[in-house]
Design a protein around this nucleic acid. Structure first.
Length: 850
RNA sequence: GCCCUCGUGGUGAAAUUGGUAGACACAAAGGACUUAAAAUCCUUGCCCUUUUGGGAGUGCCAGUUCGAGUCUGGCCGAGGGCACCA
């Protein structure tokens, strides 16, 4: 018997698939389409196990759908703009473009080694001019539709790097590279008007039954719809300021209000621009940082104005007005009324500045002892201390009734608010898509004319300067548009813009005039199954949903709102972590496992290593396994088996060498079995035997049924178990007396079932049997599933007591007769009063005995 | 603080959606083969019983039901998301 040589077999089939254009796809309207897409990778240089898992899951699905007769689009590309290229370039004095291209070609080789059924003719790369010129056109299209605008906004500013940082790049209030304390700075930024679609982005989540609930809930919370009311507070005796509008979701607590609080950026702050105390206060607020920690721990502070507001429900109640650090300008109206008794922030503030605390909601129970001290009461109950609102039930009646009253008195208006903010897309970076805009000498916005697109990135530039590299490109910046001297926009687009439409580009990757061809998009979109990491649950997926709406907006030809009909979020690949006695991370090849099951330092075998919990593989924790090495040692098919086995794909998986080894052994065992089967089929050996011949028809058809269902439900780990069951079954019957023709037919079907999971191995076996390589997904033949004999479980008072084999469809009476005769059950039934008998047809019978 | 998810052997996990709990695998122990090891194969897996059998058992406590891992309520524990959003 030959040992299975996966090196030879896998490279042979990979070559075969390329030469035979096995994975090329084109539009074919006679077939049902299936668009299978995995999130495209950032070309960091090497694929990691996360990629292996992601693309294995997608590939199994794509191959399965193809066998089912679908016209499958399964493309791959590169999310190739972004900071790592720029940083690598800075550190090693390289060109970001060259660095990126080198990485792409290396990673492409690694992906091809995995044997993925990808149509590489459709490969795209977001940093190529072919791609980003269309993105610039989309930018201008959205600009014309009024969905893009420029405004001043606060950003995280790194004073050393002279650049804006994204929130995730701010670690404990400091820049992740420079370590400098991050400041809040106001800058002119480009924005996409995503909030225009807030309501639609929220309500259409209901149209996505094939998305994980978790992701939908995360998006729902992120969009953050709230129902409330805008209330007008009149200002007492002031010439310039007549009134202030506040937004609240709790208008029912209005009688409990004891101050108004304004954001320091509130329009009224202009009246305090020359007040040094106010400026100091504002300065203090901006220093407090923007990180979660600093916000949570920040003390509530305020600046008291001389202004006094009148409670709209009672002219006699007059309250002071503060500027306060905890009020945000970009939510609601930047002004709130403080009700300390029923809001913790307001209470903290009131206690600090000795303001009134007036409870207006009391719980149904504990009415006597009810008192506000250091904790605000936000629960249910009844309104009191509130004149004509008294007695209303909180929250069911109180909020809506109060809004009604306020509207009637013209003191307020019902209002819905969203937490979702517009998407700031400006980045002060070189390695991104240039924004196709310039400014004339009056600083007016001028669009770059379409014929001048793309605005290309200048090449061979020095990145080792502080600040935005493009801003230093004096020659590049100067441009003449329609006779006007202009200066180019030097910010580039957030790379999330690139990934917000790449799924459309895959539909027509070669189209030169437009980003995509509308007919192609109408055929392929939406993506039927999108597969990727949960870390993109909000940003990327929400941005893509927005972009699809933005392109369809005011466009008669395009009417797609949801880009991804189905979404699957796979879990991470984890491995144990190791540290030395000083707490320094150790990589996997720095430690060895000794016979006592403990880990020791490789270069100092007496020092024991501290074993940490299993965490997702990452370079910083040094617990990565290199897929290239693993594929060299075990082969792509074995890696596919391992990555699918044991854990369901949506859960985290633990890397284990034993597991990898078991998967490898399964391939070897299957090959040994195949060799035996082939010998038997060729020689037409019929062994004389009295063994009962197992019913292979029944087994195969049950298997088809199980695997099909498990594929549809993403139970890929169970499919691997089914594969083991198949091996165990075949190895048990192969040396028995068999109907060879029947056996061969069934075995061919089984190999076709294996194809999506281990495509190289299955192809090799099929070819070895001289069978057609034009496979299709086998169908279940029900006649083989109809068993004459069925296992019936016999229960006494709900406890299993026996299992008998019985003819299908046996009646209750006949069953009971038979059971009464069984020796093993006599002791339960004889001389007992059978109170009741429950029959689940062809499955179970339960006797209730008293 | 708010929202969500999940608790099944030594481990990763199955369980036709209310009907045989632990499929399949990893690890372990014992055995076979072998001069030996590796590889391979077989057996075992909680409690009582020599066997036959029987009992307990899906985080804990109740409930619904002939029957609950699955449904309901409460508690405990783990993980994830959001968070001055008024």
């Amino acid at each position: 018997m030959d040992r299975y040589n996966f090196h030879e077999v896998e490279s042979k089939w990979q070559k075969y698939w390329i030469e035979n254009n096995s994975d090329k796809t084109q539009i074919d309207k006679s077939k049902k389409k299936f668009y299978c897409l995995e999130m495209f990778p950032y070309p960091s240089g090497k694929i990691h196990m996360g990629h292996v898992r992601n693309y294995t899951i997608g590939d199994v699905l794509a191959r399965y759908k193809k066998l089912q007769g679908f016209n499958v689009l399964h493309p791959m590309g590169w999310d190739s703009f972004g900071m790592p290229a720029e940083n690598a370039a800075k550190e090693n004095n390289l060109d970001p473009k060259e660095w990126t291209q080198k990485n792409i070609s290396n990673m492409k080789k690694q992906l091809m080694r995995m044997g993925l059924s990808i149509d590489w003719d459709k490969e795209i790369s977001t940093c190529s001019e072919d791609y980003y010129k269309h993105q610039q056109k989309f930018f201008l299209e959205l600009f014309d539709k009024g969905l893009v605008y420029r405004k001043e906004n606060y950003v995280n500013w790194d004073p050393v790097e002279q650049t804006v940082l994204a929130n995730e790049q701010v670690i404990e209030g400091k820049g992740w590279r420079s370590g400098a304390t991050v400041e809040r700075k106001k800058l002119n930024q480009w924005f996409f008007n995503i909030s225009k679609f807030s309501e639609n982005l929220l309500s259409d989540l209901e149209k996505l039954p094939d998305w994980p609930n978790k992701v939908k809930i995360m998006q729902k919370n992120w969009i953050g719809k709230s129902f409330g009311c805008e209330i007008e507070f009149k200002i007492l005796g002031n010439e310039k300021i007549k009134s202030i509008h506040c937004y609240t979701t709790r208008p029912d607590t209005l009688f409990g209000s004891s101050f108004l609080a304004l954001s320091v950026d509130h329009p009224l702050s202009k009246y305090y621009e020359k007040n040094n105390d106010f400026l100091n206060f504002k300065n203090q607020c901006s220093k407090s940082g923007t990180t979660e920690e600093s916000i949570a721990n920040a003390e509530k502070i305020g600046f008291k104005t001389e202004l006094v507001a009148i409670n709209p429900l009672d002219q006699n109640i007059k309250i002071p007005i503060y500027f306060a650090n905890f009020v945000l300008m970009d939510y609601g109206l930047g002004a709130v009324f403080g009700c300390p008794a029923h809001d913790q922030r307001d209470l903290d503030f009131a206690l600090k500045y000795k303001l009134n605390v007036i409870p207006v909601v009391k719980p149904e129970k504990d009415q006597e002892s009810f008192k506000i001290t250091k904790e605000a009461y936000t629960g249910e109950g009844y309104i009191f201390n509130s004149d004509f609102l008294n007695g209303l039930k909180v929250p069911e009646d109180s909020i809506s009734k109060t809004i009604e009253i306020l509207e009637k008195k013209k003191l307020g208006k019902k209002k819905i608010n969203f937490r979702l903010k517009d998407w700031g897309v400006s980045r002060q970076r070189y390695w991104g898509c240039p924004i196709p805009i310039a400014y004339n000498e009056k600083n007016e916005i001028i669009k770059i004319p379409e014929k001048s697109l793309p605005v290309k990135l200048p090449e061979n530039i020095d990145l080792n300067i502080t600040g935005n590299p493009l801003d230093h490109q004096e020659k590049w910046k100067k441009v003449v548009i329609n006779g006007q001297n202009c200066t180019r926009e030097t910010d580039t687009l957030d790379t999330f813009v690139c990934s917000s439409w790449y799924f459309l580009r895959f539909c027509s990757p070669k189209e030169e005039r437009r980003g995509f061809n509308i007919e192609d998009v109408k055929y392929w979109m939406p993506v039927d199954q999108y597969i990727g990491g949960i870390e993109h649950a909000i940003l990327h997926l929400l941005y893509s949903r927005f972009f699809m709406r933005a392109l369809s907006y005011k466009n008669e030809n395009l009417n797609i709102s949801e880009p991804f009909a189905g979404l699957f979020t796979q879990g991470m690949v984890c491995h144990e972590t190791y540290k030395d006695k000083n707490g320094k991370w150790l990589s996997l090849d720095e430690v060895i496992l000794k016979n006592d099951k403990k880990f020791y330092l490789k270069n100092n075998p007496r020092e024991e290593v501290r074993v940490g919990k299993s965490e997702s593989m990452s370079k910083s924790k040094k617990n990565t396994i290199d897929p290239e090495q693993i594929m060299k040692n075990y082969g792509a098919d074995a890696v596919r088996i391992f990555i699918l086995s044991d854990s369901p794909p949506e859960k985290d998986i633990q890397w284990s060498d034993q597991g990898m080894n078991a998967s490898y052994k399964l391939i070897q065992k299957l090959w040994a079995l195949h060799s035996t089967i082939k010998r038997k089929l060729v020689k037409k050996t019929i062994l004389s035997s009295n063994d009962k011949v197992e019913d292979i028809d029944k087994f195969t058809n049950l298997l088809i049924d199980k695997i099909t269902k498990n594929l549809e439900k993403f139970n890929y780990n169970v499919i691997i178990a089914n594969l083991y069951e198949t091996y165990n079954f075949l190895v048990k019957i192969v040396d028995k007396n068999l109907d060879l023709k029947k056996f061969e037919e069934n075995y061919y079907k089984i190999l076709q079932l294996m194809f999506p999971i281990i495509p190289h191995f299955a192809s090799e076996c099929i070819q070895d049997l001289n069978k057609s390589l034009e496979y299709k997904w086998p169908e279940v033949e029900r006649k083989f599933l109809n068993e004459d004999e069925i296992k019936i479980v016999i229960q006494i008072n709900g406890k299993k007591r026996a299992i008998i084999l019985e003819k299908k469809g046996t009646s209750k009476d006949a069953l009971i007769e038979k059971i009464k005769k069984l020796d093993t059950l006599k002791k339960y039934i004889e001389n007992k009063n059978i109170h009741k008998t429950i029959l689940v047809k062809d499955r179970l019978i339960n006797f209730i005995i008293k």
